[in-house]
């Protein structure tokens, strides 16, 4: 019996112990596959908006800065219910027509708006801040009672010159942080319906 033969005979003996203590080639493949699945599933869930959803297009490229900062219009001019109801409301064409039944400036977007109003077309604004459907949120309560400023949740939207193209999904952690900070109830039933 030479060394080669010895080596040969040793292999089958060592095999089983190796399998138990170290992941073999197949083990590595399985673990790698699982890791890949978990990572890609997580990525798919967290990034699904960016990957699968098309950017949001508004009927008019509304210039918040021009209206709010330059012309000093209050939020309730267009979002008329934010102090009165649970929702803030998006403006009807009538609200726009109050000023824009005739041209006010010379932007191309405004010209389009004036034409849409004249044609009696509906303005289908798309909501840019979204909560899951199982959340109860009242604008009235947060604005009137808690006296939050709009930008606390909506950021610098008032100084944008064109609408964002991505929906902002509000996260529960942000709500909870604020509720803790202000010593407001974090009961499930306070917000979840």
């Amino acid at each position: 019996m030479n060394a080669r033969d010895e080596q040969k005979s040793a292999v089958p003996e060592a095999g089983p112990t190796h399998k138990w203590h170290h992941p073999g080639r197949w083990g590595a493949v399985i673990i790698g596959f699982l890791a890949f699945t978990v990572i890609s599933a997580t990525a798919a869930v967290t990034l699904q908006d960016r990957i699968f959803r098309r950017p949001v297009e508004q009927p008019i490229k509304f210039n918040h800065k021009l209206h709010v900062e330059d012309n000093q219009l209050g939020c309730s001019t267009c979002h008329e219910y934010y102090e009165k109801e649970t929702f803030s409301g998006l403006p009807d064409p009538d609200v726009c027509a109050f000023c824009h039944s005739e041209k006010q400036g010379d932007s191309e977007e405004e010209a389009r708006l004036v034409k849409m109003i004249a044609d009696g077309e509906a303005l289908e604004w798309k909501s840019l801040f979204r909560q899951p459907p199982h959340v109860f949120y009242s604008h009235r309560r947060h604005v009137l009672v808690a006296k939050l400023e709009c930008k606390t949740c909506h950021g610098d939207i008032a100084s944008t010159t064109a609408p964002p193209t991505r929906v902002t999904k509000l996260r529960m952690q942000d709500c909870i942080d604020c509720h803790h900070q202000k010593n407001v109830s974090t009961d499930c039933t306070t917000c979840h319906r």
Binding site: T86, P133, H134, F136, S138, R140, R141, T189, T190, C191, H192, R193
Partner: peptide, 25 residues
């Protein structure tokens, strides 16, 4: 006022707590 429950979850009477949310509001 009330969320639609998907398949596969347990649900039960909530004492209409959404009415409490609205009432408090």
């Amino acid at each position: 006022d009330v969320s639609v429950r998907p398949r596969g979850v347990v649900e039960k009477c909530s004492f209409c707590h959404h009415r409490l949310q609205r009432a408090k509001d």
